[in-house]
Amino acid sequence: MIDVDTMVDDIRLLVECESPSADPDAVARSADVVARLGEVRLGVAPERIVVDGCTHLRWRLGEEPSRVLVVGHHDTVWPIGSLASRPSVVEDTPRGRVLRGPGSFDMKAGLAIAFHAAAGLSGVTLLITGDEEIGSPSSRALIEEEARRAEAALVLEASADGGALKIERKGTSWYRLEITGRAAHAGLEPERGINATVELAHQVMALGGLGDSALGTTVTPTVAHSGTSANTVPGSATVTIDVRAGTVAEQQRVDAAIRALRPALPGASLVVAGAINRPPLESRAAADLFERARAVAQRLGHPVPGSAAVGGGSDGNFTAGVGTPTLDGLGAIGGGAHADDEHVLVDTLPDRTLLVRGLLEDLLRVGAA
């Protein structure tokens, strides 16, 4: 029996401890709250793992060897002070009760679902990390190590629209292109300069041609900077680049193409920093688990969840990347991730928790193979 009001209280407790990824002290405070709540719900304290100043939590549940990995994160994109303008509240709406607050949907409600779903089970490892929103730089090795030991990985990230489970995620790559030209007085002797802004324009156009819409590959120049003053030929410029691709082959193709960029202006130079970050979560990694989840929903008499392919990455990319069957999007149903209207549909929490519980029991009973 799932007590929805208790779950709401748990989520609000987590949301009201702000945890922006880039603030290690805030993440450590959040880890304390998550650890205390998890100990109450699971009956055992977690192992606290600090890597490069970032705090992660790991529970080993039961006496049996762990067979299933449950993954979540407690960091958010929201800066300290966000609660002042976006307080954690529960409202009555035409869609039923809605819980709002920064980080509620992505993904503190998923943590509450994980705690309530895994309580009393044996053979489960629950890993909650503190740096997912910035690419998991300190937790990636930990996630991959745990995934290699597991028969299956369940990721409690928020659902896709309508509660759909995420069976595909694009892989992500991040780059920074640094351009060096030559500064000169823009009025007196512009001909002596090598204009880094002009070179930047050439490179942005070249980058725009590296995507492949048929394959869903996107190459997006994002933040750009150049120049120092209005009357100076810019001597340097930078642009950051976001790459999303559905296959490892596409990631590697774009990586090679970015590293092969050459200056358009004589005398300019380029330096590429960055690399492939997350491998893709391809549908074949999720296919069996997705069908199991649908069968569990049918047995429970719940609506059978659909599937979705999404562009955003998660730690499920890493678990799938090491060959572990992975199903993502098992967390809260709602919307507005990273946005002002972030929210969770309260009335869906019990069914979602029972779905995760049923899937865990199914995997522990008959194995993931």
Rank of each mutant, 00 (worst) to 15 (best):
D3N: 05
D3L: 03
D3T: 04
V4K: 05
M7Y: 05
M7E: 04
I11C: 12
C17N: 11
S19P: 13
R29Q: 13
E39T: 15
G43F: 07
V44Y: 01
D52S: 14
R58P: 02
W59L: 07
R60I: 03
E63S: 05
E63P: 00
E64M: 12
S66A: 07
S66T: 09
D75Q: 13
R86L: 14
A109I: 13
A109C: 14
L111Y: 03
A112G: 05
V124L: 09
S139T: 06
R149Y: 07
E151R: 07
L156M: 15
S159R: 11
S159D: 12
A160E: 07
R169Q: 04
G171L: 08
Y175N: 04
L177C: 00
A183E: 12
A183V: 09
L188K: 09
P190S: 12
E191M: 09
A196I: 08
L207C: 01
S213T: 12
H225P: 00
T238F: 11
A245I: 08
G246Y: 13
Q251W: 07
I258W: 01
A260Q: 09
L261M: 06
A264K: 09
S269T: 15
P279I: 11
E282C: 05
E282N: 07
L289E: 04
A293H: 06
V304T: 12
A309M: 01
A309S: 14
V310Y: 12
G311S: 08
G312Q: 10
D315H: 10
F318C: 00
T326A: 06
D328V: 05
G329W: 05
L330F: 12
G334F: 08
A337F: 02
L345F: 09
L349S: 11
P350A: 11
L355T: 04
R357F: 00
E361H: 06
A368N: 01
